[in-house]
Nucleic acid binder design. Sequence first.
DNA 1: ACCTGAACACCGTTCAAGT
DNA 2: ACCTGAACACCGTTCAAGT
Lengths: 201, 201
Amino acid sequence: MVRQPAINAKHRTPLSTERIIEAALQIIDAQGLSRLTMRRLGDALEVEAMAIYHHLPRGKEQLLDGLVVHVAAVPAAVPAPGRGATRWRGALRDWARGYRERLLTHAGVLPLLVTRRNPAALAGTTASLREILRQGGIAEATAAVAAHTLLSYVIGHAAMEVRGTAAGGEPAATAAEPEGPVDWDARFLAGLDLLLAGLNP
Amino acid sequence: MVRQPAINAKHRTPLSTERIIEAALQIIDAQGLSRLTMRRLGDALEVEAMAIYHHLPRGKEQLLDGLVVHVAAVPAAVPAPGRGATRWRGALRDWARGYRERLLTHAGVLPLLVTRRNPAALAGTTASLREILRQGGIAEATAAVAAHTLLSYVIGHAAMEVRGTAAGGEPAATAAEPEGPVDWDARFLAGLDLLLAGLNP
DNA sequence: ACCTGAACACCGTTCAAGT
DNA sequence: ACCTGAACACCGTTCAAGT
C-alpha cells in the first residue's frame, strides 16, 4: 500500500517565478495593489512568505518589476509588408485598442508602470511601433516621435480613466463631472483617430 | 525681561493642512514617495506623527489625495477672447509645457495621480482646456475629446519619461535604449505639435 | 535545493490622556 | 482645541535551521 501524502505534502509542485507573478497579478486584480503582501502572496501559493525570496532574491522590488514586464511588455503585430493604404494605420489602431484593454483589466499595475524605472521593459513595444510606422513610409525621426506619442497617449488615457472613475462606480453625474458620465471607450477612440490622422507619409 | 521659550515650545506656530502637505511634498521630492511616512512627516514638522490625524482625520489617504490636488490641479490660462489665428494653439502649447514641467519636478506624485480615484481633482484643469478650444472655434464634442487627449498625452509622456529614465541617470546608450539616450524635451514638443496640428476649427 | 520559524526594525492607526 | 505616549495589528526582510 502506497503511503498517503502528508497534509502538507513536502513534494508538491515547486514554486517558480512564473507562478509567483501570476498569483501576485490575481491578488492585484481581485483586491488591489495595496493588498499585495509577501505574506498574502505566500498564502495564495500555500507556502511561507519567506519561500518567495528563494526565487526572487531582490524581494518585492523584483516582484513588482516582473509584474510590469508581464503586463506591459506587449509588442504590436507588424503587418505583412504589402503596402496597403490604411494598413499600418489599422495595425496601430488595433494594437492601441488591445493594449488599452490589457492595461485596464490590470489597472492595479498602472501605478507600477509609472513608478518602476526600467527602460528595458517597454523597449520591445516601442520598437515594434516604430517598425510599423517605418514600413508605412514615415521618416525615421518622426516614427520615433509618433511611437512615443502613441504609447504615451494610450498609457495616459488609461490612467485618466482609472483615476477619473469614482470608487463606487456610480453612473449618475456628480458635481465632479459636470458634463455627466464620460463614455471612456468613445473618448479613447476619438482621441486615437485624432492622433493617427496627424500622421502622413 | 521676556521669558525664554522652552526647548519644546508649547505655543509654536500650529499645524495646518497647508503646512502638512508642503512638508510631505518636500519629503517626496527629496527622498521619494516610498520614504513618505507619517512618522517621518511628523519629524519634519517637529511634531508627533499622531498630531497629523487631528488635521487629516482620514490619515494618509487624505494626505495623498491632497498631494494630487496640490500638484495636478493647475488650470490653463484662457487667452483674451480676441480670435488670433494661432492664439489658442499657443495657449495650449504653453500650458502643456508648464504642466509637464510641474509633473516632472514632482515626479514622485505621478503614481498617486494614477492611483487615487478622484474625478473632481482634474475637473478644473480639463474645463479650462475645453474653454480654450471652444473659443478657438472647435465644436463642443471634439473640444471635449481634444482636452482629454491633450491631458492624457502630457501625463502619459511624463510617466514614460520617468519610467524610461534609468535610476542612476547615466548618459550612455545601454542595451535597453538601442537608439541611444532619448532627448525627452524634444520628443515631447514634437509629439505635442503632432497632436495640436490635428486640431482644426 | 528548497522551504520554515523566529526575530528585527519598521509601518499606519486607535485611544485614552495630557495641557 | 491641539498634541502626546503607549499600544495594536500589521509590514518587508534576515538568518539560522530544517528536510
